[in-house]
Design a protein around this nucleic acid. Sequence first.
RNA 1: GCCCCCGUGGCGGAAUGGUAGACGCGAUCGACUCAAAAUCGAUUGUCGCAAGACGUGUCCGUUCGAGUCGGACCGGGGGCACCA
Length: 836
Amino acid sequence: MTNRFDPAASDSRWQERWDAADSFRADSASPKPKSYVLEMFPYPSGRIHMGHVRNYTMGDVLARYRRMQGFEVLHPMGWDAFGMPAENAAMEKKVHPGDWTRQNIATMRAQLKRLGFALDWSRELATCEPDYYGHEQALFLDLFEAGLVYRKESEVNWDPVDMTVLANEQVIDGRGWRSGALVERRKLSQWFLKITDFAEELLDGLKTLDDWPDKVRLMQENWIGKSRGLQFRFKRAEGGGEIEVFTTRPDTIFGASFVAISPGHPIAEALGAERADVAEFIARCRQGGTTAAEIETAEKLGFDTGLEVVHPLDPEWRLPVWIANFVLMDYGTGALFGVPAHDGRDFEFATKYGLPIRRVVAPSVGEANAAVTEAEIGAGVAVNSRFLDGLATPEATAEIIRRAEADGWGEGKTQYRLRDWGVSRQRYWGAPIPIIHCEGCGAVPVPREQLPVVLPEDVSFDVPGNPLDRHDAWRQVPCPQCSGSALRETDTLDTFVDSSWYFIRFASQPSDKPFDRAEAEAWLPVGQYIGGVEHAILHLLYARFWTRALERIGRLGMAEPFKGLFTQGMVTHETYRAGDGSWLSPGEVRRDGDDWIHIESGQPVTTGRVEKMSKSKKNVVDPDAIIDRYGADAVRWFMLSDSPPERDLEWSIGGIEGAARFVQRVWRLAASVDSGGSGSDAAIERKLHKSIAALGEAIEALQFNKAVATIYELVNAIEKAKPSATRDEAIRTLVKLVSPMAPHLAEEAWAMMGGKGLLVDAEWPSHDPALLIDDEVTVAVQVNGKLRETLTVPRGSPRDELERQALAAEKVARLIGDASPRKLIVVPDRLVNIVL
RNA sequence: GCCCCCGUGGCGGAAUGGUAGACGCGAUCGACUCAAAAUCGAUUGUCGCAAGACGUGUCCGUUCGAGUCGGACCGGGGGCACCA
C-alpha cells in the first residue's frame, strides 16, 4: 500500500486494462437497453484544448454512469476532418492537407487516450477518408434523385487578385485576407439542398424537443423566421408588368409612400443594363462585405428610378419606385413598399430623401392627426385608411388580406427567413460532389458503382484557387450517359454536410452502404448530445434537416436525431499583456502580491478580461502539461467542479490543485479501509444513501458541479466518522460513486481494497429510500417572518406540539411579550411563523 | 436597434416561495516538523465586546414569509435578421 495515488503509473495501467477487456465496445446486438451518448466530434486542428477536455469529460461521466446502470452504451469518437485550416496549412507550410490532418488526428487521439475516456475506438471515423465521404456522396445522390438538390446562381466573395473564392472569415474589412484586394461579389452556379421544404416541420419539431435548452430552440425558431403577411402586386404605371411585394403589415397599406426594390431585382438589373447612372448606383450597393455587421452599419442608399406604380386600392394613386441598398433579393420578393410612419428603416429612408410620412396607425381614433416624430411600429387602430379606419391592427390586417384575395390583387402568405442550404465550396479539402457535367446531357450523377469519387492526392497549393480545377487527369471523364467527353464537378461539399450524418454512421458502419437502417434505429436518436453553443443554429439545424430528409426518402424512421441536447460553456482564462501591448502566456508571468510581473524582464504586466482560451490571446493551457503534472483524474475532476456546466469555467491553478488534493483524499480514505473498525454507524449510512440519491439526480441532470459538491460532502462526513463496518462499506461505495469522474483513481483504489474485477463493470450503487428520511427534523421558528429560533423535533410532530414548543422558546417568548399572536403559520417539519 | 441570458461573501457558486451563503478556492490562527512540503484542527457575509442589527444590483408590489413570483429601472454578457 502506498501513501499517495500515483497517476503517472496508474493512468496508463487502467487504460490498458480497459482496452484489453474491450470494456467500451458497444454491441449493437446486446439485449440490454441502449444509451447513445455523444459529444460533438472535434476538428483536428492540431492539439486538444481545454474546451475539448471539458466537453468530453462531461459526456464521459454520463457514459460511464449509464454503463454502470446496466445500459449498453454507445460512446464514439471521430474527426470532422475536412475544412479550410488544412488548406491554409498546405499553403503556409507546404504540407499536403491530408498529411497535416492525419498527423493532427494521431496527435489528438493520443491526447484523448491519456484522459481515459470510455470511448468505443473501434467505431472511430474521419470524414476525410473515402470510406466515409463515399457514403456521403451516395446519400447526396439519394437526395438528388428525390428532388431535394438543385442548382442555382448565387453570390460569393471573390478575390480578384488571388482569383479565388473567399469565405466570410477570409474577408477582413472588405478585403481579401491574403491579397488585400477589395472583394467583389460574383455569381456562381452552385448546388443547394432544399431545407426550406422542411421549414414548417423543422419549426414544429422544436416543440417535441423537451430535452433541449429553451435558448437553442428559440434561436432556431428565430432563424427559421416564420411570418404571416400579404403578398401582392403593384401595377407599373407605365403599363406592362408588375412589382410583387411581401409585407407583414398589410394594415399599413394606406401609409405607403414609395416602393423599394433590391439592387439585384430584375427590374433594377434591366434598368442598369440601359442606364449608366443606374448601373453605377447598383455597383455602389455591391461594395463592401456581405456580413451582417457590415450591412447593419452601412448608410442607407436610395436611387429614384423615375418609374412609378399604381396603388392597388386607388388607381389615381402613384408611388415612386426606388432602388435601395437595404432591400434583400433573397428574402420575400426582393421588393417592398415603404411606410415611413410605422417602420424604423423606412422612416430613416423617407427622412433622408424627403418622401411623405403619413400616419395610418394611432393609439386611438382621436389621435389620427398626431404628428409622427419617430417610427411607431407597435399595434393600434387604423386611421387615415379609408375602409380600415377604426379597426385594431389584427383586424385591419385580416380585412385587407380578405379584400386582396377577393379582388384578386394579392394573397395571404407565410414567409420564412430560412434560405436553402448552399453546399458548394470551391475548395480541394472536402468531399467531391459526385456530379459530371456534360455539354449534351447536363449535370449527370456519378453512377453508384463508381463511388467513391476519391480526391486526387497529387495536387499543389502553390497557386491560389481550387487545385481540382487545374487537375485535368482527374476532371476529364467520359459522360456516364452519352460517353462523350465531360468534366467532373470540382466543387466539394460544405463540411456541415459531413457533420449532418456522422452520428448515424457511428451507430452503424457497414462497408457497402452508409448505414444499416435497423442497426441505426436501434441506437438513435442520440440520447444525450453535448457540445458548444456555437453550433446552436447551423450544425444542429442541418443535422435535423438531414435526418428528416432521410426519413422522407424512406431511409430512416425518425424525425429528430438528438433527443437530449446540452450546450456547455467555454473554458476561459485571464489574459496578460506586456507594456508594449503584446500578449503574454500564463507561463510567462507570475504573481507578485496583488500585481503580476513578466518573469523574464521583471516588468509589470496588465491583466485583461477573462476570455475564451485562444492562441491569439496566448491564454491557453495545454492539457498534456497539466496531465503530466496532476494526472488525468485531477483534470477531469476540475473540469466538472465549481462552474455550472452551461456556464464558462475559468481555468485556475488553484482549482486544479484543489482537484489534485481531492484525488489524494479519496485515496487516503481507501487506504484506511478495514483498519479495525467494526459495528454500525447510522449517521454515515444515512449520509451515504442520501449522497447516492443526490448524485444520481445531479448526473442525470448534467449538474456536475452539484455532483462534485455531493461527493465532497460525503467525503467530509466519512473523514470525520469513527472507524466502523459502516464506514468501511461507505468508502467502498464512495469509490464506485467517484468512478465516472475519476476512473483511474477508482480502479486503483478498488484493486487496493481487494475489490473483484474491474470497477468499470461494477453496478451503480442503489439507495434505500427509507434512509433518505431523517427521524428528527429541524424546524425554523419565525416571528413576523424573521428567524428567531430553531427546534429539533421528531419527524411528523403534530401542529399543536410545534406551536407549543415555538411559543415556549425563550427568545420567542421575549419577543412576543404581552402581545398575543394574530396568526400562527405552521408548515409541518419545516417552520412555525408567529405573526404579531 | 431587436431578442435572450445573468447580477448572491474576497472568488467560483448552492438554495421545491419556508433556517441565504451547501461545496470548492482563497485567507487567518493553531498542530505536526530542525525546517519546508504534505496532512490535520479551528475560524472566515458585514457592523458590533455582546445582545443584536443589517445583508442576494436598485426601487415598488404580491405574500404570514421573496434570492426565488410580478412591475419599473440600473449594470454585465451573449446572439442576430436592414427579414419588410
